[in-house]
Design a protein around this nucleic acid. Structure first.
Lengths: 203, 203
DNA sequence: CCGTGCGAATGACACCTGTCACGCGCCCCG
DNA sequence: CGGGGCGCGTGACAGGTGTCATTCGCACGG
């Protein structure tokens, strides 16, 4: 049986090299090409024709999500695994819509990478379980539009009075909305609330 | 000649594993321990007594900068190399003040890591050249260590009382430091101050 | 047409924040 | 030795924040 041929796309050169070193310790996996951005990856796909593409999301030139879509379109024999820092349900959804077969987080143990590559190569889907749960049961955005507007502004330190002026509301009203949002998000103050909302992708 | 013993500290498990794999391809380098955060790293320093500590900056529990300072203090035989995504002059200067001997960016080629480790182990300093130039011209960090500790915590929404408890200070003192920091940074409240400081690389 | 619900506002209260003036002890430099 | 920083603390005050109960107007559906 021949090795699984992998194309690695990652913009941080040192991480790219390190991931290649990691995969080269696996007998059944061969890193046949590397790319520092989406455009390079697309070129490498054409010449190297890998079995699996492993790509970061946030890259210059072309994001991993766009790259995944292009890959499905033009090189359907290559299966895509997204490897990223970001546990955002929104990214996951867009990755799946773009035809990615795997979505793996960089804070998972190193061994999971090779494992995911093998499983995706076999035709399975590999989604980070916690993230999948979060996306599925995904408490969909509890915030109203007003709350979002206000929390957004409060999140970078603007006082209620300023927000009220900008939105043509009274100060008290702004504080009421903030209080609502803080409650909904289980926070104890506006800053924490903004952090939570941002992290969940609701801001 | 025996191998250079290296402790790797990095919070993203997969990157940690990958870097370890990268270094293990070098004959003269041995990864003798790994840590997922600053606190773990400190413990590992005590037991493994590595020649070189390679650490990320942004980690939970304890940042790489604090870790570098602790290392110089308590394990002076271990030399520190900072390995980070962030090309911020403020980080570089603070790293050097904390006694780090190397400052390397994750978007440099993978080969430079082993090279930097060898050179630092030999007693040389290894600083990313572009960043060194930038650090010379930028305005200097106005924050004291206390202000930084406190502003950092205040920046993600923790109330003064909580910060005071954590740092064994009185609430009033915490507020005094915050007031100082807000003034120095030209902000109007703690959140804005934290934003400014982060953006300048002072947090 | 009468509820119900929703967005917006008010007022009151306790608590948190930002600022300032000032006090204390300590270490270090002249 | 004595003064000056510096880190830390206190107390006080004005203003901001978080919470709640209550109100008003308006749209909507029965």
């Amino acid at each position: 049986m021949s090795a699984i041929r992998v194309l690695l796309a990652e913009d941080q050169a040192m991480i790219l090299g390190a991931l290649a070193a990691l995969l080269s310790t696996e007998r059944d996996i061969e890193v046949c090409a590397r790319a520092h951005n989406g455009r390079e990856a697309l070129a490498a796909l054409a010449t190297a024709r890998p079995d699996v593409l492993v790509t970061d999301i946030e890259m210059p030139e072309m994001t991993g999500l766009t790259l995944a879509a292009e890959t499905r379109e033009r090189f359907p024999a290559t299966r895509t695994v997204i490897l990223t820092t970001f546990a955002r349900p929104g990214y996951l959804r867009r990755a799946l819509e773009a035809g990615a077969k795997g979505y793996l987080l960089k804070d998972r143990p190193a061994a999971e990478l090779a494992d995911a590559i093998r499983r995706v190569h076999r035709g399975e889907r590999v989604i980070d379980p916690e993230l999948a749960a979060a996306a599925w049961t995904g408490d969909p955005d509890p915030l109203t539009e007003r709350e979002r507007q206000i929390l957004w502004r409060a999140g970078d330190g603007r006082p209620s009075a300023e927000i009220a002026a900008e939105l043509h509301l009274s100060i008290g009203t702004v504080r009421n909305y903030l209080s609502e949002a803080i409650g909904k998000l289980g926070a104890t103050n506006r800053i924490e609330a903004a952090r939570i909302a941002r992290q969940k992708g609701w801001l």
